[in-house]
Design a protein around this nucleic acid. Structure first.
Length: 698
DNA sequence: TTTAGGG
DNA sequence: CCCTAAA
């Protein structure tokens, strides 16, 4: 029977195509992509942060994103800005400098008036989880620069000492957190100054592949203590722990409430870090990360997945409370969650920073990475910091502690996305998350010998940071500022859609997929920061374009949004974000092929063969703009598959067996006559046709 | 832009 | 359907 039908169709269908191929130019209607998906590279991230800081410092005052960008621009001299943390006693100056040649990026930060006692809280590697927990609920991004992969390291020096110390700090982000009241002001003395940039290269052989290392140097006056007089020396050897045992458990001065909670959520994730491949290359862009492979991998690597997992939606990043809620919310079966784990770059001994995080980019894999990797392994935390042999002498009160930070680590960003989400949406989601984080503000955490120093009030001396030994192990971490992002009910972390509205998602309307909206909400209040998250919200999508509330924010966004590129790119980019968004977008709505379409497809393929999808499109789907040749090719693929499987296993609108038989026949035929044979086989070759006979003919 | 494949 | 590497 079947047979017959086939014949009926005649192998006519298989005749060589008579139709000359139409010029490709003909095609139209296919979807176009923009290449430039937003990608974030570490560098950008860093830049954005810097920009943000600037802005804040400047406060509303001015500037457009452009300023930030400008700073970044190559060749430009460093710009300094002071920033005051209103909340905080600190005043910091950031110096941004980036040279094209050096690709050095420096921050100069001076903190003044730090009168805080800080207590340390240790975290050991073992504890790393905790640390992570606290710090991150977000996966960290590498700040590595895209290109060469920059390594970032922190170098500490004490001015007094001629010697330089370079210590690398693993994730370095300083937290400015909570010190608020300090009784003591140590103003001048305490300030941290950011010292000029240095090229690693000069100092060291750059292990890092990165051509343009970014370094941050901080110089802090030796005297950390309120009393400049204080002596550091004794402690040098002592481990912070020993020194300040009592502090350990101390309350966190500024500590965030949230941290712990958050951390819990993420604990597991933290482990992942260890696994991370050292590879880092700045170049990589997040997007790559996004790729399915990574996703898949990541989970495996870790155990971390949240228990709640399957269900459904997951918040981009959770804060503790939200997590619970969300869990409840999760229902969707449809969606799978994916997690993205990014790690933060770790500073390698040589200073190379590793950003392994997302980057997959193997290309660069530098040897140096090993170090990094090791570090990573320890604790993703970045706890490990290799120390360059630096000697620090803090004897003098005057002495300033100098350090350069080559890389910042951003805490893990935990992202969950429905399976149905497209890569584009994923990208967007990440961007948003990043943006949001930035928006909400990053805190800088200080790690001393792998332990997180929590109390901001303590002087450097008190904490032992001034000690040379400690400097080596001094690290900074960038962590999301939990505090700022209050966990407003649900919305806070996750986009509402994801969290609760799974149903919508299910519907698969693309719009629903948009993650942003929720995210944006998340960002709270910081004037500057807040809306930033929206970066892309798409106009197309549901989310409201309200994105930017502030003008101030734009910069951040801009930076983030910008695909990682050369500095120039950064400079340029600022304006376009929205455009991008639209493009990144959602996956097209699903439009199952109707039987008639299948029939038309089969017929066209019978005549044209496989491998000429454009022609098939033109012939049979000329008017169906929503069917691209890629779609047709994919459909054919699925038809072939469908035809091979048991009918019971087929899903969706049933395709007449007759068509499936033709599919197999044509598939078989064309697979054997691959080339679109000029020779004419025409109707002939019944055998071939029959071959497919796998199909249950009878 | 198309093809060809993997996801 | 998406995303990409190759053509």
């Amino acid at each position: 029977m079947v047979f017959k039908k086939r014949q009926d169709h005649g192998f006519n269908g298989f005749r060589l195509p008579t139709i000359p191929r139409a010029p490709r130019s003909v095609r139209r209607g296919l979807r176009k992509k923009t290449v430039e998906d937003t990608q974030i590279c570490a560098f950008e991230l860093l830049a954005s942060i810097a920009g943000k800081l600037l802005r804040e410092s400047e406060s509303s005052a001015s500037s457009n994103a452009s300023e930030g960008i400008d700073l970044l621009a190559c060749g430009k001299d460093a710009v300094k800005q002071e920033r005051e943390f209103e909340d905080k006693p600190f005043k910091a100056e950031w110096l941004y400098q980036r040279n094209c040649g050096d690709s050095s990026f420096a921050f100069e930060m001076a903190s003044q008036n730090i009168s805080h006692k800080s207590t340390l809280k240790e975290f050991s590697h073992a504890e790393s989880d905790d640390v992570l927990e606290r710090t991150s609920f977000i996966k960290s991004f590498d700040c590595s620069q895209k290109a060469g992969g920059d390594v970032k390291s922190v170098i500490c020096k004490s001015k007094t000492d001629s010697e330089n110390y370079s210590s690398k700090v693993e994730g370095g982000s300083p937290q400015f957190g909570e010190s608020s009241d300090a009784n003591v002001n140590i103003e001048a003395e305490r300030r941290l100054e950011v010292v000029g940039l240095k090229n690693e290269d000069a100092n060291k052989p750059n292990i890092c592949s990165s051509k343009v290392p970014t370094e941050l140097f901080l110089e802090s006056p030796a005297a950390i203590n309120s009393d400049s007089n204080v002596k550091l020396p004794l402690r040098q050897n002592s481990v912070p722990n020993a020194c300040f045992p009592r502090y350990r458990n101390d309350t966190k001065l500024g500590s965030r409430d949230d941290d712990e909670n958050l951390s819990r959520c993420f604990k597991r994730s933290t482990k992942l870090k260890a696994f991370r491949p050292p590879t880092r290359i700045a170049d990589r862009r997040i997007r790559k990360l996004l790729t399915s492979k990574y996703w898949k991998v990541a989970p495996k690597l870790k155990d971390c997945e949240l228990p709640r997992s399957d269900g459904g939606l997951k918040p981009l990043y959770c804060k503790r409370k939200t997590c619970h809620d969300r869990q409840k919310c999760q229902r969707d079966i449809l969606f799978k969650r994916r997690k993205l784990f990014d790690q933060i770059s770790v500073v390698t001994s040589d200073g190379g920073f590793s950003s392994e995080s997302v980057s997959n980019s193997p290309e660069k894999g530098m040897t140096e990475d090993k170090n990094d990797s090791a570090a990573i392994l320890h604790g993703a935390n970045g706890v490990s910091s290799s120390v360059l042999g630096h000697q620090a002498s803090f004897h003098s009160k005057d002495s300033h502690v100098k350090f350069s930070i080559k890389s910042f680590r951003v805490p893990e960003l935990f992202i969950e996305v429905p399976e149905t989400a497209t890569v584009g949406s994923l990208k967007r989601t990440i961007m948003e998350a990043v943006t949001s984080i930035l928006g909400s503000g990053l805190d800088v955490g200080i790690l001393l010998q792998g332990k997180k120093v929590r109390d901001d009030n303590r002087t450097l001396m008190q904490t032992g940071i001034s000690c040379k030994d400690n400097l080596d192990s001094l690290g900074f971490m960038l962590e999301p500022n939990t505090v700022q992002t209050p966990p407003p009910t649900c919305s806070s972390d996750l986009p509402p859609l994801l969290s609760c509205d799974s149903s919508q998602l299910l519907t698969r309307s693309p719009e629903n997929l948009v993650l942003d909206s929720g995210i944006s909400d998340t960002l709270p209040d910081l004037p500057l920061t807040n809306s930033s998250n929206h970066v892309d919200s798409n106009h197309d999508t549901v989310s409201s374009p309200t994105d930017m509330n502030d003008k101030t924010t734009p910069d951040t966004k801009a930076i983030v949004a910008v695909p990682a590129m050369s500095m120039e790119a950064l400079a340029v980019v600022p304006l376009n974000q929205k455009t991008r968004r639209s493009e990144l977008v959602q996956r097209r709505t699903r439009r199952p092929f109707s039987v008639s379409e299948v029939e038309a497809l089969v017929h066209a393929v019978e005549e044209l063969g496989t491998g000429r999808w454009r022609d098939v499109k033109l012939r049979a789907f000329e008017n169906a703009d929503h069917r691209t040749y890629v779609d047709l090719k994919d459909k054919w693929k699925t038809l072939v598959h469908t035809a091979k499987i048991a009918p019971q296993q087929r899903r969706g609108e049933p395709v007449p067996q007759e068509l499936l038989d033709r599919v197999l026949a044509a598939h078989s035929y064309w697979s054997q006559h691959q080339a679109k044979p000029q020779g004419k086989h025409q109707a002939g070759t019944p055998k071939i046709m029959e071959a497919p006979a796998e199909v249950p003919i009878e």
